[in-house]
Design a protein around this nucleic acid. Structure first.
Length: 424
RNA sequence: GUGGCCGUAGCUCAGUAGGUUAGAGCGCCGGGUUGUGGUCCCGGAGGUCGGGGGUUCGACUCCCCUCGGUCACCCCA
């Protein structure tokens, strides 16, 4: 391959048509659903003060190893970072603006993590998500989770499983952490080397290990459910009852711990069974009742999720749904009389609201017709020297066996719309 | 950060016991049809075989390094 001078940085890529249009459609589907559920769009900066993200957990890899950090040109320079996720930004914005509660926000956009790319994982990746701040009503949990499920359905996905768990609250969590750590230490020798290290850093995360060697130990580990405070247990029951009432299928997964340290009580994950890759979680979220306070705001409960756009699209491919399709051109203008007439006709047709394209460089009739065919246009408007002399155009139905007729160029819009209406 | 596999035209890939001008399909451009696409036929453009170094009379082919891709671990969407 002749190598270009530059290429997209590692872990990033160009999204070309028609794939780019497909992603835009996906976001539009999400936006529609979110807005009809009472969520408003928050557009927050792509980068934030480093401190915003450090609150996600000091021993978390997302924060310690995977951040794109940099200094700006201020005096003194500000220490900034590209956002690795958006929940922290939403909470920062909440603490900064103190909006009325509950504050229901949706978002979409690129995020950045310095990791080795693999299937379904990129350094720049897109997520869509929602956050509800200012209420710990279990119905808010249910609304958020339900929105996620409906979104996957709207894309035509059928093989998405919902896993849920409760991580407990400030009163129940420490007891569990202690019990889990004690248990894991008692069987420390059976754990993989990596898990032994993880054990000292954050025992909870050992439950996340995919190593074969760790599985027997994990299988017998104490379960959070046995340690939930009365309040947390009640909350979890209410969330499940709410999901039941929506006929939402879910699996309680006692070992679902999730990566970010801020999660409390409800946690959940959407898994795409159509993906046979290691990264098959297409979305995840949970409750983070302490995060706003950590960021200097008032104590405010919150719940939300982030869905990985890249992985969702991969899963859609695997399920054969939500296919990429180019934006349809309805009319193609062929001009073998110099191209000036095409400019005028295109303009007129576009002003009439139609999708119109044309060829350049004065190519042959045949070449232009070929373009017209490949554009997918249903109608071709042809103008050559003959038509030009008569102030007319030829309007051709591009369907197989479709006919054509000559009309005055002033009538081009109505002639075209007639054929389009016929085909619709 | 660690490891496996891979790197030949725009795309998908052939090609090596190391040896003249590196091939196919698709795509692209042109022609067959001096005004008409989708099928068919003909022709054409396009590659310093990822980059650098080494071995050799000679390297796309062997060795080393490097860059990139891919998959997995870690971690996560």
């Amino acid at each position: 391959m002749a190598q270009p001078l530059f290429r997209a940085p590692v872990g990033t890529r160009d999204l070309l048509p028609p794939e780019s249009a497909r992603r835009r459609r996906l976001v539009a589907v999400f936006a529609d659903l979110a807005e009809r559920t009472g969520f408003g769009l928050l557009e927050s900066p792509i980068f934030e003060d480093l401190g915003v993200f450090q609150r996600l957990g000091a021993d978390n890899e997302v924060v310690t190893k995977e951040l794109f950090e940099f200094f700006d040109k201020g005096d003194p320079p500000r220490h900034l970072a590209l956002r690795p996720e958006l929940t922290a930004s939403v909470c920062r914005a909440f603490a900064e603006h103190r909006p009325t509660q509950p504050w229901k926000i949706w978002y979409s956009g690129p995020q950045f993590r310095y990791e080795r790319p693999q299937a379904g994982r990129y350094r720049q990746f897109d997520q869509v998500g929602v956050e509800t701040l200012g209420t710990d009503d279990p119905h808010a949990d249910v609304e958020v989770i339900g929105l996620g499920l409906r979104f996957y359905e709207a894309l035509g996905m059928k093989q998405v499983r919902l896993l849920i768990n409760s991580l407990g609250d400030a009163t129940s969590r420490p007891a569990y952490d202690a019990a889990l750590a004690a248990y894991l230490r008692s069987r420390r020798d059976e754990l993989s080397e990596q898990s032994q290290i993880t054990l000292e850093r954050n025992p909870l995360r050992v439950l996340d290990s995919k190593r074969e060697q760790d599985q027997p130990v994990i299988a017998e580990a104490p379960v959070m459910a046995d340690f939930l405070s009365g309040e947390s247990a009640e909350h979890f029951v209410a969330v499940r009852a709410g999901l039941d009432s929506l006929d939402a299928a879910y699996e309680v997964s006692p070992r679902l711990v999730r990566g970010l340290d801020y999660y409390t009580r409800t946690t959940f994950e959407f898994v795409a069974d159509a993906l046979d890759t290691a990264q098959n979680a297409v979305g995840g979220g949970g409750r983070y009742d302490g995060l706003v306070e950590d960021l200097g705001g008032p104590a405010t409960p919150g719940i939300g999720f982030a869905l990985g756009v890249d992985r969702i699209l991969l899963a859609c491919d695997a399920e054969g749904t939500f296919a990429a399709a180019p934006a349809p051109v309805e009319v193609f203008v062929v001009d073998t009389a110099g191209g000036q007439s095409a400019a005028v006709l295109c303009d007129r047709l576009r002003q009439a609201g139609l999708g119109v394209d044309r060829a350049f460089d004065g190519r042959s009739m045949k070449a232009q017709m070929k373009r017209a065919d490949r554009s997918g246009a249903a109608v071709a408007v042809i103008i050559g020297p003959d038509e030009q002399a008569e102030g007319a155009v030829t309007v051709r139905d591009m369907r197989p066996g479709g006919g054509q007729r000559q009309v005055a160029s002033d009538d081009v819009v109505s002639a075209v719309t007639e054929i389009l209406a016929e085909e619709a």
